[in-house]
């Protein structure tokens, strides 16, 4: 059963006991989240049926298309800041043209997937947590259970599929907008013409950079869905609980994305 019964613990007597309890709770939470993810993944084939098609489409629309506005702004400024910062330094060596490759590489490898992940975790992930949390509080999830509609299949799987598809696509979008942002700064602030910028931009980036970044985005998508849906299902104590679940979703997603992002980078770029 996905909904947790409220648990009660005797008040802790000392620091060690308290720490131990938190560690155990964390491990247990991770385990439950992982089991939920596995169940959702096992349900992915059901996503092909017409019953879930609409839900997946809806989630794709909400998490993908609806996020384009904020992503555009964030990506544009990320690219512009990157170009400006590296450009100012490279100018000392009269090598400003290298902002093209600097911005492209940083966007493709790290900033593209990470910025997309941050925005999606903060906007879409938190909304997943809030929505599922509210459903738990208002017994909608219980209603689904009683109707023998598996909450994980009905609520988590479409979101998981949607983010697995949309995260890499949004990352491509972020990358493009970020590189364009860099070009704008290059042209207006650093005197690097657009053709020179784009020529340099495409000079050092490789398909490996692009696709490792997209792989990261897929992993981030899975992480965001897992964390947000699990936090949603773990909601207790009404509206306060929903708020807490939302906050925890954003914080945990960021931390996990940073750690996993580092590990993926380490794995592919020794």
């Amino acid at each position: 059963m996905i909904i947790q019964e409220p648990e009660h613990f005797e008040p802790t007597r000392n620091f060690v006991q308290n720490t131990g309890r938190h560690v155990l709770a964390m491990l247990r939470g991770s385990g439950r989240a992982m089991l939920m993810l596995l169940e959702a993944m096992r349900d992915i084939p059901h996503g092909l049926s017409s019953k879930h098609r609409h839900d997946i489409l809806l989630q794709q629309y909400v998490s993908g298309v609806k996020s384009l506005g904020v992503l555009t702004v964030v990506a544009l400024f990320t690219g512009m800041i990157l170009a400006l910062q590296t450009g100012i330094e490279l100018r000392r060596f009269a090598q400003e043209v290298y902002i093209g490759s600097a911005v492209t590489l940083v966007m493709l490898r790290e900033m593209g997937p990470f910025m997309t992940g941050m925005i999606i975790a903060a906007s879409v992930g938190s909304s997943f947590a809030a929505q599922i949390g509210t459903m738990v509080v208002s017994e909608e999830v219980s209603a689904l259970e009683v109707m023998s509609i598996k909450p994980v299949r009905y609520l988590v799987m479409p979101r998981l599929v949607a983010l697995i598809i949309m995260m890499p696509l949004l990352t491509v979008y972020t990358n493009v907008i970020g590189v364009v942002g860099g070009a704008i700064v290059g042209q207006t602030q650093l005197g690097v013409s657009m053709p020179a910028y784009f020529d340099n931009a495409t000079q050092y980036a490789q398909n490996k950079d692009l696709y490792v970044g997209l792989f990261k985005a897929v992993v981030f998508g899975i992480l965001i869905t897992t964390v947000s849906c699990y936090q949603g299902f773990s909601t207790t104590q009404g509206a306060v609980g929903v708020g807490r679940a939302t906050r925890r979703t954003v914080v945990i997603s960021f931390l996990v994305m940073l750690a996993v992002g580092y590990m993926i980078t380490r794995l592919f770029y020794q």
Binding site: M135, S138, E139, E140, S142, A143, V146, M147, S148
Partner: peptide, 16 residues
């Protein structure tokens, strides 16, 4: 569970 129909306190309708 299929033998049951449950009316929850807040009706528990899916809002969307």
């Amino acid at each position: 569970r299929n033998r049951f129909g449950v009316l929850f306190q807040g009706a528990a309708l899916l809002q969307w």
